[in-house]
């Protein structure tokens, strides 16, 4: 979308889906917006969603709290895609509880008293709650600087979000595989939480996901 002298990075009404956000990369140093980190993360993901190193390589002089926060926003956003897929298959009748392995039943923390929501509700409630928390004016009033106390909130969101991956992996494997093939989201998430030690290793119950992920028989 280079208009001669000036590149305008915008999506014009009427354009094709394949043109969407297909503008030349903008160097991070030149981003002067308050949403620079989000822009940068999305730009790197668009270039190659499988290149975890590149996606999670924090620019120099970047506030780590904001970096983690923006990545978590991006994870929650992309998890909507998994939730959409699960909505078609994960029914309250079949998955009455949020489980991964048989070891734990997870209680949904979105309610006043945590309760045993069916897996699909747990998924939705967790994502909705995360959206509320991460957009909360109280804890995250700014997207350029974040209080240390608010950064601490990211951990619990990560833990709950990870359960969505694990439920999908253990109970809806084909959906998980199809989604993972497309987005590499779980791999990226695991890499992310490990790199910044957000979740302890014991909780990461999914086997290491290598590139030899079996070719899922696409969506049911």
């Amino acid at each position: 979308m280079a208009d001669g002298l000036q590149i305008l990075r915008r999506n014009r009404p009427g354009s094709k889906a394949k043109e969407f956000c297909r503008w030349p990369d903008e160097p991070f140093e030149e981003m002067d917006s308050t949403l620079a980190v989000q822009q940068f993360i999305q730009q790197t993901i668009r270039r190659d969603p499988s290149n975890l190193e590149a996606i999670l390589k924090m620019p120099e002089a970047q506030d780590e709290g904001v970096w983690k926060y923006e990545h978590l926003r991006q994870f929650c956003m992309e998890l909507n895609g998994l939730a959409v897929k699960l909505q078609a298959e994960c029914k309250p009748e079949t998955c009455t509880q949020m489980t991964a392995t048989e070891q734990w039943i997870f209680l949904c923390a979105a309610h006043k008293t945590p309760k045993e929501c069916p897996a699909i509700d747990y998924t939705r409630h967790t994502l909705d709650g995360a959206a509320c928390l991460l957009n909360s004016n109280k804890y995250f009033p700014s997207r350029v600087s974040i209080k240390e106390s608010s950064v601490a909130k990211l951990g619990s969101v990560c833990r709950r979000v990870y359960r969505i991956f694990s439920h999908a992996y253990f109970h809806h494997r084909s959906i998980f595989d199809a989604f993972e093939k497309e987005t590499h989201l779980c791999k990226r998430f695991t890499y992310f939480v490990t790199k910044y030690s957000i979740i302890s290793k014991e909780i990461l119950i999914l086997p290491k996901l290598d590139d030899e992920t079996p070719v899922g028989e696409s969506e049911a």
């Binding site: 994502l127 509320c132 928390l133 957009n135 909360s136």
Partner: peptide
Amino acid sequence: KKSAGLDVEPLYT
């Protein structure tokens, strides 16, 4: 609640 400071919380997603 957990989202104090929000003017409006979405009813539905």
